[in-house]
């Protein structure tokens, strides 16, 4: 049941992205989608609307990049609670540091190991 919920919610969040790319008159690139999802996720999270999605769909809401925005926002809020203004500034990146560092580190490793095939 948990898996099915994750599938449905995750699929639905991606489906919205596809509609944005196909049906809007602007040229929506992957860059726009990624930035848009992170920003929207963070804003929804700030309004307290994203946690319910995670509670319902688990990874279905956490794995899409809006979940990344959620982590950023919750990190900043958490930081505000515990460390005051310094926490506000650093909290978001602290909460997502592992993910970002993994991606950057692996980016470097994979780039040195592989060659693009085209």
């Amino acid at each position: 049941m948990e898996l099915l919920k994750a599938f449905i919610l995750g699929g639905f969040i991606c489906l919205i992205g596809q509609l944005l790319m196909d049906l809007t008159p602007f040229n929506v690139t992957p860059g726009h989608i990624l930035v848009g999802y992170v920003t929207c996720g963070a804003i929804l999270s700030g309004l307290g609307l994203y946690q319910p999605l995670i509670d319902w769909g688990g990874a279905g809401a956490a794995i899409p990049l809006s979940g990344f925005g959620h982590s950023l926002a919750q990190g900043a809020i958490e930081g505000a609670k515990t460390k005051g203004l310094l926490g506000v500034i650093g909290g978001g990146l602290e909460a997502t540091a592992v993910g970002i560092a993994t991606a950057i580190g692996l980016g470097l490793v994979v780039a040195s190991l592989f060659k693009p095939k085209g």
């Binding site: 995750g10 699929g11 969040i13 991606c14 489906l15 919205i16 992205g17 596809q18 944005l20 790319m21 196909d22 992957p30 989608i33 990624l34 999802y37 794995i63 899409p64 990049l65 809006s66 979940g67 990344f68 993910g99 991606a103």
Partner: peptide
């Protein structure tokens, strides 16, 4: 399409 862009794997 967006199915592989939106998840963190797309990032």
């Amino acid at each position: 399409g967006a199915g592989t862009i939106v998840p963190i794997t797309g990032f």
